[in-house]
Computed example of a mutant assay.
Amino acid sequence: MKPVIGLAVGRGTGPELAVVFDRVLAALAELSGVEIGVARSPRTYHSYHSLRAEGGMSRVRELTREDADHYERFCRTQAGLGTPAIFRTAVNAQSLYLVRERLQAVKVDVLTTPSSSLLLVRDEAQGFYTGENRHRPGAVDRTTTFSRAVTEKVVAFALERARREWPDHEVDRIVMAYKFHLLDGALDDWVAESALRHGVEITLSQPDTVNRNLVEHGLAPRTVIIAGNEWADIMHVVLLDRFGSEKQENRYTENVHLHPEVSGLVEYQTVHGSADDLEGRDVVNPTATIRATAAIAERHGRCAGAVRRVEAALEAIGARGVLTPDLGGTHSTTAVVDALLAELQPASTLVAGS
């Protein structure tokens, strides 16, 4: 049976990046001699800017809920069919976080330096980015929830992922970055219970303390940071600059769903947003989408060596200056993808380690 990958597309530059995904995935499948199906969601989901163009607050709330409900059904349906992964372009954050709360999602990113590695696990299932809004004259009340059960799931996932990331080594440091002082001591107790249950030491710290320690001491060789999105979302670009030497526009991340009904479904997304100001101009940077597609093809589409082939091709076209304007080039999105596909070579022609 051929593998099938889900595809969900948002407004802004989403349709353009969906074309990039389709083209690169098809090329990698052909190079590997496999067939990969794509199950595309029939709905084009809103960006924040497209929502605001639809009307006032009541209309925004209505469409936000419709997008969230539809995307949740799409994820559940694909998981039920055995689809291992979904590629999703940027979608309005409120809709996404409703789905992430319901499906208990975490976001995973690995940043490496020559001497250290950071596994960043972002808790998307609870906290101040999740929850519901209640409107009253001149005010919005937002209600959010933290729970022992979700906290334990997030910690257990992070520890399991760390073992996969460093199978031959112990983790040197495990830190949780949360505003735990606002939770009456509940999070302290839950984290202590998890640490005892798993036989590890976990340091629960305020976000500013985590920042200070990173500035003062840097990363241990193998560090795990489990973080609420209140810190991780803001700090991601700083962590990339300090420890990853990479631009957000060039990276993708994984969202892993922990709810048992969709367990195992992984959603890949670009780190950058919907870039509505670039919509239809054919100048959006396709690098993150290309890299996400390669990872999906290799991990879920039986395309061995896809990531290595794509990285080699990206390096080659970058050396020739084939770049979009945000990277200092003058090429269109389509031209960059055309050059990349022309550069890709069949697996048999690559020398190991090249």
Rank of each mutant, 00 (worst) to 15 (best):
L196A: 13
V171R: 00
L214P: 09
I202G: 00
V191Y: 00
T209P: 08
L219G: 01
A195P: 15
W166M: 02
L204C: 01
A186D: 14
H198G: 06
L214R: 01
H198T: 14
D208L: 04
Y178G: 02
L204I: 10
E216S: 14
W190F: 08
A192T: 13
L187E: 01
L214C: 07
E201V: 05
D172I: 00
L182V: 11
A177G: 10
T203H: 11
V191L: 09
V191M: 04
V215I: 11
T203C: 14
S205I: 02
A186E: 08
D189L: 11
L204M: 01
H181G: 12
G218I: 04
L219W: 00
A195S: 13
V175F: 02
R212N: 13
D184G: 06
F180V: 09
R212L: 11
I202K: 00
G185E: 05
A220F: 06
W166V: 00
L196E: 15
L204G: 07
A195F: 08
A192K: 15
G218R: 00
D208G: 07
V191F: 06
V210C: 04
S205G: 13
F180G: 07
G199I: 03
A192N: 11
D188V: 10
K179W: 06
E193L: 08
N213F: 03
N213M: 09
G185L: 06
A195K: 11
D172F: 03
P207Q: 01
W166L: 07
N213H: 05
V171N: 03
D189T: 09
D208K: 15
A192E: 15
Q206L: 12
A177H: 01
D188L: 07
G218F: 05
N213Q: 15
D189H: 04
W166K: 04
L204Y: 00
Q206Y: 12
H198N: 15
